[in-house]
Amino acid sequence: MPAVDGVSMTVNRGERVAVLGESGSGKSATALALMGLLPGSADVSGSILLDGEELVGRGEAGMRSVRGERLALVFQDPLSALNPVYTVGRQISEMFSRRRGLPEREARRRAVELMERVRIPHAAARIDDYPHQFSGGMRQRVVIAMALALSPSLLIADEPTTALDVTVQAQILALLRQLSDEEDMALILISHDLGVVASVAQRVYVMYGGQIVEHGATQPVYDRNAHPYTAGLMASLPDQYSRRERLVAVPGSPPDPRALPAGCRFHPRCGWAESLCETTPPELLPVDDGHRRSRCHFSDRVLQAGSPR
């Protein structure tokens, strides 16, 4: 059963890209596939190129050398992502001691440096604290520090702020932006949150039913949607994007990957759907000025309309 299907993405060095979609749209599966961390029962086919190097089919040992070193992952819930029985210092410093073979003292010194870089106050004093002694935002900083340890060229952040307070969210996002600039590190941000995506990403891939349905630079995609699903997401925002009394939801629920609709996967929930959509799956094709792509038979009409039906 395919959770993700024909997803093709490109991220340039130092660039920040977002994957936007509802839960169950295949965002996290894409992240785990990139890291080679899907369970052994999962079947990954296609191609993952990192600096021109093929990652698919490298095997566990081959992927292990890439993880942390060149690809790193930040998880949604920092409390469960940290080992409860070890101090944060040991969890950060093992990136240096285990992966790089540095002596313990040196690894520890570097761990303090990293904690300072992700702006954990009193890093030298807090290095021997356990994860449960930190607040949610500080925990996520620890997870980010671990991910940054070996200066990866690509950081994948899977809903990094979903488990955090709104005020802390903004700080973590600012930190991620800043680190990606400083390190010239590419960032793939996975989120269901339009605001989070807008504040971080230069480009956005909108996912639905395990496929990319729209792709382009963030601002144009937000301003003028080329896919009815994106339009529906925008319409559901309660803020300045729309000044209506009632919140508008995209009707229906995301498709079950075991029983995907024929034709366009979005057609049962789509206000634009015609009989063509029920039979023929649309391709992801360039639209507008050619820098954007949409997987919709009627993307031109959607673009023209500028607002959802």
Partner: peptide, 13 residues
């Protein structure tokens, strides 16, 4: 547990 996934994502053996 998720922290085992974290450990794997760190490239530990």
């Amino acid at each position: 547990e998720p922290y085992i996934l974290t450990a794997r994502s760190k490239g530990l053996t």
